[in-house]
Amino acid sequence: MAIEITIRDGDPWWMSPDIWVVPGNDPEGPSGVPIVGAPAFLWARVWNNGSNSVQDATVRFYWADPSTGFDRNTAHLVGTSFVSLGAGEVAETLCLQPWIPEFVNDGHECVLAEAFHVPGDPLPSTPEFNVPTDRHVAQRNLSVVLAAANGFFRFTFNVFNVTRLDRVYRMTLEPGDERQLKPMIPTLGQEFAGVTLNGKLSKGAIVEERCAAEDAAGESAALKGGLDLPISAHRKVNRTLVGKVEGGPALFHLKQWEGNRVVGGISLLVLPRNAKQEG
């Protein structure tokens, strides 16, 4: 193809290594985790895998509340940037319009970036992002969760049925591995450079109670089959994942299935707090 603009997906697809956040007032500062209410800047790595160069391709940056279901019309546009790329080139692109993260969905927001050129390589004409199938767009939906010193953690999330029909979604929690996390490390922040995923989930449960205590977490094996969530059309339900990790940091993927198809998800990097931090 003459021009093939791409922002890569991750594994799973919402863990794109090509989108990251620089918190603070310096857009060229170190990458890290955004802080609610404080400015942050979004970056994207854009590739031209085509055989022709492209001038002034548009890159749009969004944030969205993953619990509400979103598309190009409902996601929040943070800003726009432009990038010129030769054939086979890649460039890091900064969105200079600052993003002030809001406290929605218990603080779990995802960011998206899409790159395109009109008329050389336009976007599909649908409002849906179609992240896993559209190379123009990628998503980063990774939350860092600090566990207690004993490894207990709690993570509240929403699941939204964006369709006009009632649906039953299956939620599963799957362990992640270092191969999946490694591409994200350079942009997660310096403090994550030495993270080794040697932790395991010893207990876990998805419960309705937002402030569930540690004893709500049952044997982690109970999560293996997943949890069916019937949700009426255009409604959302709120659930809390409670669990306990042992042995160190761990990565999990909370996946939303519709039949045999993954329609959404979020990944959690759970970091046990050491006794000193706890104090």
Partner: peptide, 18 residues
């Protein structure tokens, strides 16, 4: 080649050019 990458206000509408 030189181009404007981005501006800090979305209310500034740049006509892109390299």
């Amino acid at each position: 080649q030189v181009y404007i990458e981005s501006v800090s206000s979305p209310a500034i509408a740049v006509t892109p050019r390299t």
